[in-house]
Simulated assay, not measured.
Amino acid sequence: MLTGIFVDAGVVLLGGIGGAACSNSIPARLKDGLPIVFGLASMAMGCALIVQVKAIAVMVISLLVGVIIGELCCLEDRIGGWSTRANLLLERYVPVPAGLTQEVFLERFVAITVLFCASGTGIFGSIHEGMTGDASVLLAKAALDLPTAAIFATGLGYAVAIICVPQFAILFTLALLAKQIAPLTTPLMNANFAAVGGVLMFATGFRICGITRFPVANMLPALLLAMPVTAFWLHAVGP
């Protein structure tokens, strides 16, 4: 059913509309304080997944090689560039909120588009649901995305609600692809994959809190490597 994907995209739509409509009613201290809680929640979910790891060496190798690939391919810069080009279309259809220049508006809009569409939590959660049918990660993400979208919409307006369209398309496609490879996986592969996803969620939490700006998008290849590296490790080293 891919419930988590529908719910996550739906709450971004509702949060974007609700936040824009109530922008004058939300206290500034709430806008400033909630993101820190979002970051802490992401770190907590990451820890819950990391403890599932069955082979620490597999997790470490996947992350190291994955980051090297991501950095060499400049994934984070490319994703930001794609988002910028796509969001230039907004200039024609979406008015810039009062108090923001077009440049500042686009910069912030690109940032939250990447946050909702290409975050480690969302990509891991959609693949995880497609492979296992477990929507818990995306449902937990949705609980965070609703107030997040609302908070961003207080400053950027109804444009935030539009993000649900590319978000749904990306996560839904990833989940469908994951369904195809699910029969080829093992519980050990799934556990190590979840652990790598947990590290990305932990890094995302640090970034949201403003502690350290981890290049989370450049870490995404680690998710693709977790299962092949697990298979190689079992063949070379054994369980």
Rank of each mutant, 00 (worst) to 15 (best):
T3I: 10
G4A: 02
I5M: 00
F6P: 00
D8S: 13
G10V: 07
V11Y: 02
V12F: 00
I17F: 12
I17N: 06
G18Y: 07
A21V: 11
C22H: 09
C22E: 09
S23L: 06
N24Y: 03
S25T: 09
P27Y: 00
A28G: 07
D32N: 10
D32T: 09
G33R: 11
P35F: 02
P35D: 04
I36V: 12
I36M: 12
F38P: 01
F38E: 04
L40K: 08
L40G: 15
A41I: 14
S42E: 13
S42C: 11
M43L: 05
A44F: 07
G46M: 01
C47S: 10
C47M: 15
A48I: 03
I50N: 08
I50C: 11
V51M: 10
V53F: 14
A55P: 01
I56P: 08
A57Y: 06
V58G: 02
V60F: 03
S62K: 05
L64K: 03
G66T: 04
I68D: 06
G70D: 02
L72S: 12
L72F: 13
L72R: 15
L75M: 13
G80H: 12
G80I: 07
G80R: 13
G81K: 09
W82T: 05
S83K: 08
E91D: 13
E91G: 10
R92M: 10
R92H: 13
R92S: 12
V94N: 09
V94L: 09
G99K: 14
G99S: 08
Q102D: 13
Q102T: 08
E103K: 15
V104W: 05
F105Y: 11
F105E: 08
R108T: 02
F109S: 09
V110Q: 10
T113E: 14
T113W: 08
L115W: 02
C117W: 05
C117F: 04
A118L: 13
A118S: 15
S119E: 09
S119P: 11
S119C: 12
G120Y: 03
T121Y: 07
T121C: 11
G122D: 05
F124V: 03
F124T: 00
G125C: 00
